[in-house]
Each structure stands twice: as structure tokens, then as C-alpha cells.
């Protein structure tokens, strides 16, 4: 914006309005077009989002982090073999690969109260950043309440409903999946948590509750875990999750949705 260069850039007089919204207002213009600075800022935000979508779980690192929690950790895969397949075939992301099914069968694990699943979803970046501390905190609280825990499951190329496929073999009373949310331009590292009571194949998303935007700059780990504990206890009390659970308690509805697009 060096005036002496006379590039034709014009700022907008109403820049103070930016105080009211994070929307991209008062961007200024050259001719009728968007200034380069703003165009490149947009591109950078989009680049972060795209990189997050194509990011991969660092499984050894995640396994090492989760192992410290004191539960066995098992790494599984969905039927979606790669990211492009995952994006085009959401049905594959909801099913376990044949190998993974075999592993769960061999586990022959007794039915636990709570099963925690960690899946990349649409942002492995979100999981690598947020899953460790949140899962650790939640496991502590769940143990304090005297609930039993299934082994921790890490799933690559997983969607929310892979919870149901896990449920078929492990039969937990309740499962929570931590999953990378669809990146937006303003956040590419948000983690979601979906809670399903008595997960089994054939459930639909209105049978789950969701806590969204878990990350340091959004819903921080401690608050997220408090909300999850509230939902876990309500779910065990009412023996269900989903729309009805939302309707019957006073949780902040801006945070707890019965369902969210993946």
C-alpha cells in the first residue's frame, strides 16, 4: 500500500467494522478486484485446510503417546485404502478392513463400559494435536467414576460410524470416537467427539451426540472432557444417546449437536 507506487489499491473506509465479525469484510480493492494481500491470505488458509485433509496419522507417534495412558493400544484400518477412496466412498470409511476385523476377533476382549476410538477423519492434524491430552484426561475421569475401559483403538481412514463396526466385535456399553473435523478456512485442527450408546451396525447419526471444535483455541481439553463426562453419565442413566438425550438436558446446545456433517 505504498501510495507512491500508485498501484490503484483503495482501502475501505469502514475498516472499524472488522471489530464486529471475523468475516472477511473491508478488504479494499484495486479496480473492482480483491487486493493481492487478501487473495494470498485466503490461499494460505485454504492451503492449511487442504494439507489437513490430506494429512496422515503418525501412527507410531500416536501409539507412543497413547501407550502412556496405561491401556493397550490397537491400530486398525477402515476399508478405504487411501484418501481419495475415503473421500469418495464414505461407506468404506464406516467399515473395518478384513485384517482389522480379524484383529478385533482375536482380541476376544470382555465387554467394557467405555470404548475410546481415535480416527483421522478429515483432519489427521487435528488428532495429532489434540487427541493425546484429551484422551488421557478422559481416561482418568472415567476410571475415577469406576467404569471399565476397552483397549484404545486407533483407526486410519475412519468415519464416525466406524464406531458401529467396532461395536459389533467389542460390544462396549458406550463408545466415543475422537475424529478430525472437516477443516474450515478459520480452523484446520478441530477435533470432534461423537458418543454412541450401545454401538452396533445399522445405527444412524441421530443416535449419537457430538461435541465439536475441540482444540486449544476452541473448546479446550478440560472443558471438552467435562462435557463428555456429563454426556457419559446421562447416557448410562437414560440408556441411550442421540436426539432424545439432547432434548432432555440443559447442555449448551451450541456445543452439543445430535449430529454434524462429517
Amino acid at each position: 500500500m505504498d501510495e507512491t507506487k500508485k498501484t490503484g489499491m483503495e482501502a475501505d473506509d469502514w475498516e472499524p467494522l472488522k471489530a464486529y465479525t471475523n468475516a472477511r469484510i473491508a478488504l479494499g480493492k484495486t479496480g473492482i478486484s480483491i487486493p493481492l494481500k487478501e487473495s494470498l491470505q485466503f490461499r494460505l488458509a485454504h492451503a492449511h485446510a487442504k494439507d489437513a485433509v490430506y494429512s496422515q496419522l503418525n501412527v507410531p507417534e500416536l501409539e507412543a503417546t497413547l501407550s502412556k495412558i496405561g491401556l493397550p493400544v490397537y491400530c486398525l484400518k477402515s476399508k478405504a485404502e487411501n484418501r481419495d477412496m475415503y473421500l469418495q466412498r464414505p461407506d468404506f470409511g464406516r467399515l473395518l478392513s478384513a485384517d482389522s476385523v480379524q484383529r478385533l476377533q482375536k482380541l476376544n476382549s470382555p465387554s467394557a463400559d467405555v470404548c475410546l476410538i481415535i480416527a483421522d477423519g478429515l483432519s489427521a492434524t487435528a488428532i495429532m494435536k489434540n487427541a493425546g491430552p484429551v484422551v488421557q484426561l478422559l481416561v482418568e475421569k472415567v476410571r475415577q467414576e469406576g467404569y471399565s475401559l476397552a483397549p484404545l483403538l486407533v483407526v486410519e481412514q475412519g468415519r464416525v460410524a466406524i464406531t458401529d463396526a467396532v461395536g459389533e466385535w467389542l460390544r462396549p456399553r458406550l463408545a466415543i470416537i475422537f475424529i478430525g473435523e472437516r477443516p474450515g478456512l478459520s480452523s484446520f485442527d478441530s477435533m470432534g467427539a461423537y458418543i454412541t450408546y450401545a454401538p452396533q451396525p445399522g445405527l444412524t447419526d441421530e443416535r449419537r451426540n457430538c461435541i465439536s471444535n475441540i482444540r486449544e483455541q476452541g473448546l479446550p481439553p478440560e472443558l471438552a472432557v467435562n462435557k463428555l463426562m456429563y454426556l457419559i453419565q446421562a447416557a448410562f442413566r437414560m440408556q441411550l444417546t442421540g436426539v432424545t438425550l439432547k432434548d432432555n438436558n440443559a447442555l449448551d446446545t451450541s456445543v452439543v449437536y445430535p449430529q454434524l456433517p462429517e
Binding site: 465479525t21 468475516a23 472477511r24 478488504l27 485466503f42 485454504h46 472437516r182
Partner: peptide, 12 residues
């Protein structure tokens, strides 16, 4: 949409 970026619906 301001800057083509919908900050509520998270799409462009």
C-alpha cells in the same frame, strides 16, 4: 459472501 469465506457454514 465477504471474501467468499462463509465463517458460519465453513465453505467457500
Amino acid at each position: 459472501i465477504p471474501g467468499a469465506d462463509d465463517i458460519m457454514l465453513n465453505y467457500q
